[in-house]
């Protein structure tokens, strides 16, 4: 790094540069040591938030002593003075505006969780009734199917919807008789719609009420030529399962609130 030949203070001619008397250096040194002792001493006392101000004030006095006398800025021209102190101005801008972001991020109001928030919408369903198809249920199922299922399973349930091309494995062809993971009974299809099919692109639709899911199941079965029926044992098992509240499940809005709340807990001084 080239350091020699920097004619900062005396242009191209050798004008006599101010020679600081040596006792000035000595006195500055003495002051610096005193100030150091003072600043260390005050750090052992507790003045609360004043501590930092005192420490910074002392540090700045020491800094000015070094800059003005040891570095000789007191005797330098305006150019060097302006140059050097300018850098602190820009540093202040950097600190200030960055702080305006980092220290003023808003924290949302913490929300107390409510036990009832954690359950699904709606009371436990009457399985005995819903397991039997009715025209209303099938019509409702058709509407829900068109809204949620046609993209993958196709308008005729053949597993040939527009999105099916990109999926692996391919969506279930409801007219087929083989390959059903959970069976073609009402309870089987209900389970598939509720839990999805792990390892495949079929997602869970637990957000739909139990009645809605039964409706969809009934509609799906209309694509089949000879649909199998549930046994009594199947229905009993399903009643037990659906009758009890499902595993806790959060809505997306509530999940976002909880994330914000947890963040706030970890960042208490975020205001």
């Amino acid at each position: 790094m080239e350091k020699s030949g920097k004619p900062e203070s005396h242009g191209s001619h050798d004008s006599p540069h101010h020679i600081t008397p040596l006792n000035v250096y000595g006195r500055v040194f003495g002051s610096l040591i005193c100030l150091t002792i003072i600043t260390v001493a005050t750090s052992y006392c507790d003045f609360g938030s004043l501590n930092i101000l005192i420490a910074m004030a002392i540090a700045t006095i020491k800094a000015l002593l070094v800059i003005l006398f040891f570095m000789g800025l007191k005797y330098e021209g305006q150019e060097n003075n302006v140059t050097f102190f300018c850098s602190f101005v820009f540093l202040a801008i950097f600190v200030g505006l960055t702080s305006s972001d980092l220290l003023y991020r808003s924290t949302p109001e913490p929300v107390k969780p409510d036990a009832s928030e954690l359950t699904m919408s709606g009371p436990p369903a009457d399985v005995q009734k819903l397991v039997k198809p009715t025209p209303e249920l099938v019509a409702k199922g058709k509407a829900l199917f068109t809204q949620n299922c046609v993209t993958c399973h196709g308008g005729e349930g053949k597993g040939d919807g527009p999105a099916a091309a990109a999926l692996t494995p391919k969506p279930r062809n409801f007219t087929a008789t083989e390959g059903w993971k959970f069976g073609r009974t009402v309870s089987g299809i209900f389970k598939t719609v509720t839990n999805g099919s792990p390892g495949t692109p079929m997602p869970p639709f637990a957000g739909l009420s139990a009645e809605d899911r039964f409706a969809v199941a009934h509609y799906v079965r209309t694509f089949m030529s000879s649909a199998p029926e549930d046994t009594g044992a199947d229905v009993a098992a399903l009643t037990k399962e659906v009758g009890t509240p499902p595993k806790p499940h959060l809505s997306v809005e509530r999940a976002m609130e909880k994330v914000a709340e947890e963040w706030a807990a970890g960042h208490p001084a975020g205001k």
């Binding site: 350091k3 004619p7 930092i52 420490a55 910074m56 540090a59 800094a63 040891f70 570095m71």
Partner: peptide
């Protein structure tokens, strides 16, 4: 000049420490 310039650099090193010391150790 090189003596003076090296001196200035050295004083800056001192200056930075004058701020580092209280900020890290004392407060």
């Amino acid at each position: 000049t090189p003596v003076e310039m090296s001196g200035l650099y050295w004083h800056l090193v001192d200056l930075i420490w004058i701020y580092l010391f209280p900020l890290l150790y004392l407060i």
